[in-house]
Amino acid sequence: MAIFNLNINGKSMQVDVDPATPVLWVLRDHLDLVGTKYGCGVAACGACTIHLDGNAVRSCVMPVSSVGGSKITTIEGLSENGDHPVQKAWLEHDVPQCGYCQAGQIMSASALLSNNPNPSEEDIDNAMNGNICRCGTYLRIKAAVKTAAQNL
């Protein structure tokens, strides 16, 4: 066990855990930030996507010991009032079915748009390729990313 000071959603938080613990489980079990989801544990589905210094990363394979002073953003911290353009676009297109993968989708989409405000169709496919939606809401996801890009 070791103590880690983490910067999460603009707040400093402390946990005492096994250094190998993935950030996913630190968030979910130790900090009660359960919006980030467990899907596969091997970075193959994208459900656990968070931002590390603004970039989309898979938190299920990232040991907490590797975070250091980097800034973590989770779905809970993406916006103050749930009004990030990507979140608003997701509501406008009524994207979710079961909803389980959507936090990861939104985190991938918002990281894409912060680095590339005018993504092409191909850019969207590439950036979102790592996020599985078992319900098959991909067309709405794509439409919502485009709407969000217009409203950035």
Partner: peptide, 20 residues
């Protein structure tokens, strides 16, 4: 619109796996 839409896009606990 989906009555749980806002909770889904803001990552609120909704699923049994989120319960504690």
């Amino acid at each position: 619109r989906n009555v749980d839409g806002e909770k889904i896009v803001t990552g609120k606990p909704l699923f049994a796996i989120d319960h504690k």
